Amino acid sequence: MKLAPVNIKNKRATFDYELTDTYTAGIVLTGTEIKSIRLGKASLVDTFCFFSNGELWVKNMHIAEYFYGSYNNHSARRDRKLLLNKKELKKLEKGTKETGYTIVPVRMFINEKGLAKVVVALARGKKQYDKRESLKEKDDKRDMDRMFKR
């Protein structure tokens, strides 16, 4: 049975934040979690990353319990460790020290080796007027595309 490629996006992240640097990180999972992700049963809504003892963790990521998991199942919203090299961790930690910056998971996918990866971005929160401006740009782009298709 061939499953569709997994590509779970955090659409809210690009709307609420201005993304500066992106990094691809591995993620530490249990057996039932990776099975749920392969079925596409995960969500990045309201997720964020934080540092604890020099390690990067993702909080509030929802991975649905695996249907056939029985007593081995995982809790859906537990904290999960992200795997990056030391240089990337230092850059991210230095970036979060600046006012207004945070680390946000943008996308989760499964690579060609079958490993789950998370794309995290160093992001700065947008103001309300920035959000309106990005919506206006999106509408203008859509209108221009319609004009050229005629």
Rank of each mutant, 00 (worst) to 15 (best):
G54T: 06
S70Q: 11
E112H: 12
V119P: 03
A64W: 10
I103D: 10
G69T: 04
Y71L: 08
T22Q: 11
M1V: 09
P105Y: 10
V28G: 12
K90E: 13
T14A: 13
L122H: 02
G69V: 01
S52P: 06
D16P: 05
D46Y: 05
Y17G: 09
T24W: 02
K113D: 12
L19Y: 03
Q128D: 09
A25E: 00
K86S: 14
E55Y: 10
K141F: 09
P105W: 05
F109V: 05
D16L: 10
S134K: 15
K149A: 14
V28A: 14
D16G: 03
F48P: 00
I27L: 10
D16N: 11
K141H: 03
E18P: 01
T32N: 14
D16E: 10
Q128E: 13
M108V: 11
R80L: 13
K97F: 08
Y66R: 11
K2N: 08
F51H: 02
I37W: 01
I8P: 07
E137L: 11
T99H: 15
T32F: 02
I8H: 05
G95W: 12
D130G: 09
M144F: 13
N10C: 09
K2W: 03
W57V: 03
K11E: 14
S52K: 13
M147L: 14
I37P: 00
L83Y: 08
K91L: 15
H74E: 08
K117Y: 02
